Every structure is written in C-alpha cells, then in structure tokens.
Simulated scan of single mutants.
Amino acid sequence: MLIGIILLIIGVFVAIKPYLAWYLYIGWQIKDSEPTTIALSIYRIIAILTIISGIIVIIKGSFSN
C-alpha cells in the first residue's frame, strides 16, 4: 500500500507541475532549453497513468488481507 501512496504522490506532482518534472529529469542537463508542448503533454499522460496505477495498488493492497 505504501507503493500505491508513493505512486499517487508522484503522479499528482507531475500532473500539476509537468515543467518542473521535465526540468528535474532532463532540463538541468541542457542550457537555455524549454520543453515542447508535446513533451509536457506526454508527462501529463504518464502522470495520469501513474495516478491510476497508484489507485489500483492501494485498492488491491486493501483487499489482499
């Protein structure tokens, strides 16, 4: 269940701040660069999938006892 909570936190963070997530992943390596709209959209899609995965892990963890 802890993994599900971690997935939820990461997913919400990336969904709210995709620019910061992009910067932490690759942006710091490239001087004076900006992410494309497509890159930010992909980060949001991945965030939504991460949130869904976190919810599934939490639900499965609560019923596995």
Rank of each mutant, 00 (worst) to 15 (best):
I56G: 01
A39M: 08
I3Q: 06
E34N: 10
A39L: 02
A21W: 02
T37D: 12
S53G: 14
I55R: 04
Y19L: 09
D32K: 01
I16S: 05
I6F: 13
G54H: 00
I38E: 05
I52E: 02
I16D: 02
Y25S: 14
W28E: 07
I10Q: 05
I26K: 07
Y25H: 08
S41E: 08
I6P: 01
S33G: 08
Y19K: 14
I46C: 11
L24Q: 12
W28C: 01
K31R: 04
L8Y: 07
I46N: 08
I56R: 06
I51P: 01
I30G: 02
V12W: 10
Y25L: 13
A21N: 03
I48W: 10
I26A: 08
I56T: 13
V14C: 13
S53L: 13
I30H: 07
Y25D: 10
K31L: 11
R44A: 03
I45Y: 11
A15P: 00
S33H: 04
I10W: 03
A47S: 15
L7T: 00
L8A: 04
G4W: 04
I6T: 13
I51F: 03
P35I: 08
Y43A: 11
P35G: 03
S41D: 06
S33N: 12
I9T: 15
I38T: 14
K17R: 13
I42Y: 03
I6G: 10
I48K: 03
I48N: 02
A39N: 06
L40F: 11
T36Y: 09
T36N: 09
S53D: 01
Q29V: 06
T37F: 05
Y19V: 06
I5D: 00
T50M: 13
I56Y: 13
A15R: 10
I55A: 12
I56C: 04
I38C: 00
Y23D: 12
I9W: 07
L8T: 04
I26R: 07
L20T: 15
I16V: 15
A47Y: 06
